[in-house]
Simulated scan of single mutants.
Amino acid sequence: MHTLAIVVTVVAALWVGFSAFSLLRRAAWVVEPLTEYGVPRSWWPRLGVAKAAGAVGLLVGLAVPVVGVLAAVGLVLYFTGAVITVLRARAYGHVVFPTLYLVPVVAALTLGLVG
């Protein structure tokens, strides 16, 4: 189980890190929906940094488990908020996108708590 937890955590961290990078680089496929959902531009840098910090926290958690758990909990809250934001914007077809980030983080958290 330990190896699985490490692999899932690293994949989740890389996936969330990619999301952070894409937001910080203001990739059109990321920022256009944020505009549509009504997320203020002034929030974008902080949201990107929060995701990046969470990704780093997941990796640090491989050595310091409490940091990984806290990072995972933070990311679960972040992506749950993203799902709620999409639902409030009534962009129901887009709910899958934040969920694609939420699921691996939940898996990493679950495996981290079980292991």
Rank of each mutant, 00 (worst) to 15 (best):
M1L: 13
M1P: 14
H2K: 13
H2N: 12
T3P: 08
L4I: 13
A5T: 06
A5F: 09
A5V: 06
I6R: 13
I6K: 11
V7Q: 07
V7F: 11
V8R: 05
V8E: 08
T9L: 06
T9Q: 03
V10K: 03
V10E: 03
V11P: 09
V11A: 15
A13M: 03
A13E: 03
L14K: 05
V16S: 00
G17E: 04
F18M: 13
F18Q: 14
S19N: 12
A20R: 04
A20H: 03
A20P: 09
F21M: 11
F21C: 10
F21V: 12
S22Q: 08
S22I: 02
S22W: 06
L24H: 05
L24W: 08
R25Q: 13
A27S: 10
A28E: 14
W29V: 11
W29M: 10
W29I: 10
E32M: 03
E32S: 10
E32V: 12
T35K: 15
T35N: 14
Y37K: 04
G38P: 07
V39N: 01
V39P: 00
S42A: 15
W43H: 13
W44S: 00
P45I: 05
L47C: 09
L47R: 06
L47Q: 11
G48T: 03
G48K: 05
G48L: 07
V49I: 15
V49T: 12
A50S: 14
A50Q: 09
K51P: 00
A52D: 01
A52K: 00
A53G: 14
A53H: 07
A53S: 14
G54L: 06
G54Y: 03
A55Q: 04
G57F: 01
G57C: 10
L58K: 02
L58R: 08
L59M: 05
L59K: 07
L59H: 07
V60Q: 09
G61P: 08
G61S: 07
L62C: 00
A63M: 01
A63Q: 03
V64M: 13
P65A: 11
P65K: 03
P65F: 03
V66A: 15
V67F: 10
V67G: 10
G68N: 09
V69I: 14
V69R: 08
L70F: 09
L70E: 04
A71Q: 04
A71M: 06
A72P: 12
A72D: 05
G74M: 10
G74R: 06
L77V: 14
Y78S: 00
Y78C: 00
Y78A: 02
Y78I: 00
A82S: 09
A82H: 05
V83D: 02
I84V: 15
T85K: 08
V86K: 01
V86R: 04
L87K: 11
L87N: 05
R88A: 13
R88Y: 11
A89M: 10
R90L: 12
Y92T: 11
G93K: 12
H94R: 15
H94Q: 15
V95I: 11
V95G: 01
V96P: 00
V96G: 10
F97H: 11
F97G: 00
P104H: 11
P104D: 08
A107N: 09
A107R: 06
A108Q: 02
A108N: 05
T110F: 12
L111Y: 03
L111H: 06
L113K: 10
L113Q: 04
V114T: 14
G115F: 09
